[in-house]
Amino acid sequence: MTKMKYMMSGGLAFSEQKDMQKLQKNAQKGWHLNSFATLGYNLEKKEAEDVQYSIDYRKLEKGEEEEYFELFSTAGWTHVCSSYEMHIFKASPNIKPIYTDVESNIDKIERLARPVNISTIFVALIAMLFWVIMTFTNSPFQQIGTWLFICSYVLLMPMLGMLVVLQYRKWIKKC
């Protein structure tokens, strides 16, 4: 039976680089990335190995996967696991990075930011709607509206945080 262990993610918007470094450190101790898990990764016990990890975000249509993974493997990057539009690859430490230019790297952050942007706008609109209900109606609607407004507001704050961080990451790449 293989031994498994869970590693928590710091949140890819915030600490993608740190996550990848943590995965590398774990592999050096024999804990290898096996698959994505809820808010983290599943690691599997094997031989210790020095490997670097990289993540890419890309929606692959039917018939695109083969070419995409073939390009990575010919460049020395082995596909480890995928979840939704996220793909993690590993390679020995002397292999060149998967992104070698600034422009494509910014495109990558934009692909990561797109769903965050859309859901933030959505939640912001909902929060505004509840604020209107809360302000301009009488009970019991007012009370329900207040609670729902607080809930959506609490949800909105970390999303705005993510937006700011992603914009910042794009900005430092450009400098």
């Binding site: 990289s54 890419d56 890309r58 995409y68 390009l71 990575f72 010919t74 460049a75 990057w77 060149k96 990075p97 998967i98 992104y99 070698t100 230019d101 494509s104 790297n105 495109d107 990558k108």
Partner: peptide, 11 residues
């Protein structure tokens, strides 16, 4: 000059 696979695919 090296072109990484993710850069190549994006371009």
């Amino acid at each position: 000059f090296v072109i990484g696979p993710a850069t190549l695919y994006t371009i």
